[in-house]
Design a protein around this nucleic acid. Structure first.
Length: 265
DNA sequence: ATGGCAAGTGATACTTGA
């Protein structure tokens, strides 16, 4: 059994107690965090809970981390083809014994905080699409090098894959997070041999992972599904469940994103 | 059509997010 989750915490400092509580309750093998918004990381606090930490921190913006029961190796914090000061990726390899994958003893995890893009006519949108191209290359390289190793790509993709992942398609037309070019970039990544685990199960309509802080968006369920867990095709068959945990979004001072959790045999 | 909310920085108003 391998339980893995992703959560954009929008400042780990502010959300630390919530993350600690969530870990105690759900006890995942791996938790991928985005937007920790700090150069430092409170590793000692997670160590007390039995979790190892790896992180790529940055002051003010971005920053990603991975907590895990097992010690990881093969840490990568940059796409080899793309120089970027923004800390948005963290790849690591974890020990994992799978009955269906007897030849591999590991699973590779790629934690992503995909750029937001701001607006379709913004420089940041160009950056987002360029970033996604390098991300695609990086994953393609992984499949070439380690064709038999299970891969999980998860995180805040800042792309709603389909219209069903958007509360109001008209309101989000011609916008970042839903534009055809972004969706095509995601599709190109999926076409390498990855599946959106959430959609391998029947789900409630209007299932979202992010809701704006403003205008009571959570209460009115006006959200987007932009936090995803992708698994390599063969490994995705081992996925037993993939759910969005809306509970933390209802807490006092919540992150605008909420955790997504997948369990693999 | 607009702004609404939150977080970080640093000490105020600005930037960024999605």
């Amino acid at each position: 059994m391998f339980k893995i989750a992703t959560w954009n915490v929008n400042s780990l400092k502010v959300r630390l107690a919530q993350v600690v509580d969530w870990l105690k309750t759900h006890q995942p093998d791996v938790l991928a965090l985005q937007e920790i918004k700090s150069k430092d990381f409170p590793s000692a606090i997670f160590q007390e809970l039995g979790y190892h930490s790896v992180f790529a921190g940055q002051a003010t913006y971005n920053g990603v981390a991975v907590l895990s029961r097992q010690v990881s190796d093969g840490i990568i914090t940059d796409f080899p083809t793309f120089e970027d000061l923004q800390r948005r990726i963290l790849a690591a390899r974890f020990p994992f014994n799978s009955a269906t994958f007897p030849t591999t003893q590991t699973v590779r995890v790629l934690n992503l905080y995909v750029p937001n893009g701001e607006a379709l006519d913004s420089e940041k949108y160009v950056y987002k699409l360029t970033w996604l191209q390098h991300c695609q290359q990086f994953i393609a390289q992984h499949f070439q090098q380690f064709p038999d190793e299970p891969l999980i790509v998860l995180g805040d993709f800042n792309i709603a894959p389909q219209d069903e992942d958007v509360h109001d398609v008209n309101a989000w037309k011609n916008s970042v997070l839903t534009s055809p070019a972004e969706r095509q970039a995601l599709q190109t990544i999926l076409d390498l041999g990855l599946q959106d685990c959430f959609r391998n199960f029947s789900q409630a309509e209007k299932s979202f992972s992010w809701w704006d802080y403003r205008a009571a968006a959570f209460k009115r369920n006006r959200g987007l599904r932009i936090d995803l867990i992708l698994a390599s095709t063969a490994f995705a068959k081992n996925c037993e469940s993939c759910v969005i945990d809306k509970e933390p979004r209802a807490l006092e001072r919540p992150s605008d994103h909420t955790p997504v959790v997948a369990v693999f045999k």
